[in-house]
Design a protein around this nucleic acid. Sequence first.
DNA 1: TGGAGTGTAAGATCGGCATCGAACACTCGC
DNA 2: GCGAGTGTTCGATGCCGATCTTACACTCCA
Lengths: 109, 109
Amino acid sequence: MAARTSHRSAPAHTHPDDVAVQAALAALADPVRLQLVRELAKTDDWTRTCGSFDVPVGKAACSHHFAVLRAAGLVEQRDEGARRLNRLRRAEFEARFPGLLGLVLREDG
Amino acid sequence: MAARTSHRSAPAHTHPDDVAVQAALAALADPVRLQLVRELAKTDDWTRTCGSFDVPVGKAACSHHFAVLRAAGLVEQRDEGARRLNRLRRAEFEARFPGLLGLVLREDG
DNA sequence: TGGAGTGTAAGATCGGCATCGAACACTCGC
DNA sequence: GCGAGTGTTCGATGCCGATCTTACACTCCA
């Protein structure tokens, strides 16, 4: 199994190509998830852990939101030791839904 | 009151500029509303009435959905006699959320 | 090996939204 | 005026999703 840092089962990912427009919109229509995506976009890939976000919800809810973002093809997760690192799938998502990520990351409401 | 065809109170409209991204996404994340927008895009402006859509819901729900689309700056309505005609606000919405309407109107899921 | 830190899973609760049925308002043609 | 057609509003209902608490699994480090 090569150089795996973790023995935890890797989370199931969905490629943006397999995501319906409606699912993508629904994923981004939630305020908490919107904040997660925006904060995630501000930092480098594989630097933010699930619990490092300043969201007004508990860790269980936060974990749930990341599962939704994963299913929508918006984020990718990788285990590194006890932590689960995240990455925004900019390129793939942009290829599937051109412009959508840009709209969401704009400053204005 | 000039040349009004109707005496019914005109529905309240919201300009896309006053709509938050999240509200726009939420409006389009519903399957029925998505269908309404798509069908509306296929025909000329001011030709479709509220009840002329083949949606799997009653007229009360349909009326509600049009109110949501109106509040999201997606459609404009105009009374003409007993009927309420609709128009997709392509240009204004495109100016506010570039590319979003195009994504939604694409053929693929 | 034990404790701290991190994330997930399960079960319960709660609120919001989509929907419906019925009643009402308005317009048009007879 | 009356009936048909069209659309909105109201109240009630049902369901899905967001959230919490608790418990569990896993990793790291002392």
